[in-house]
Amino acid sequence: MSAVKNPNPALIVGKYAALAFYLIFALFPLYWLLKIGLTPDALIYSEGTRLFPSEITFSNFTTVIFQTDFVAYFRNSLVVSLGAAFFTTLFAAGAGYAFSRFVFAGKRIIIALMLVTQMFPLLMIIAPIYKIVAELGLLNSLTSLIVVYTAFNIPFATFLMQSFFDGIPKDLEDAAMMDGCSRFQALCKVVFPLTLPGLGATLGFVFTAAWSELLFALMLISKNDAMTFPVGLLTFVSKFSVDWGQMMAAGVLALIPSCLFFIFIQRYLVQGLTSGAVKG
């Protein structure tokens, strides 16, 4: 199609200008984060608003890693995010599979309830959850965060998984069952390997969401040694409110896992959206 067109040069210039605008808009804040993190302390005030620092240093990064609780926050966040991602994906895969493959009593009601959980303010349950968790004596424990994040993420993850399962022809399981599998075996041997991209996407999605959750973590965690990244960084910010370089270095470090995960899931998300990936 494009070969036939004879596009207007003004349009082309406009298009590339638009592309440049989006790129700069998306990346500039991240660049700035990195820049200040790399600027030596002495130069921050004199060169605070220069586009390029005249000198760079990694001292902010090493200080953050070795002389603060940063590593502990990182570890806590990793535990919580991986735990939540694992359990959410596991349970959502089950639920998504049931929605995709079975007709059963109450299906509509359950789907409707899951949709409702996507609509009301989750803040609404922040107070009751605080009280329940407090009564169970689970305040300041990572377990309570994992449980809460898992529950919150299940509805969306279920719909995501369902669409991945929907993309896998039902005939394949039927064939596997004719070949001698039980349904569960068919799920493990045939459906599961084909859903790996979907599982990956869901895992990454939940990980990213859990990695950045702030409000429930603030509410349920107050002890320093159980803090996750967002909470830790926030207290960090108020504690060291003058040390810009260290804060930004910590910010850059916090960014790394979720960006890695994003690059990892991006491929699968696109695959999932353009379904039919597994046909033939």
Binding site: L23, A26, L30, T208, W211, L233, S258
Partner: peptide, 11 residues
């Protein structure tokens, strides 16, 4: 350009 979506909200 999709990267901002991956940046944790607090960050």
């Amino acid at each position: 350009v999709f990267l901002p979506w991956a940046v944790p909200t607090f960050l």
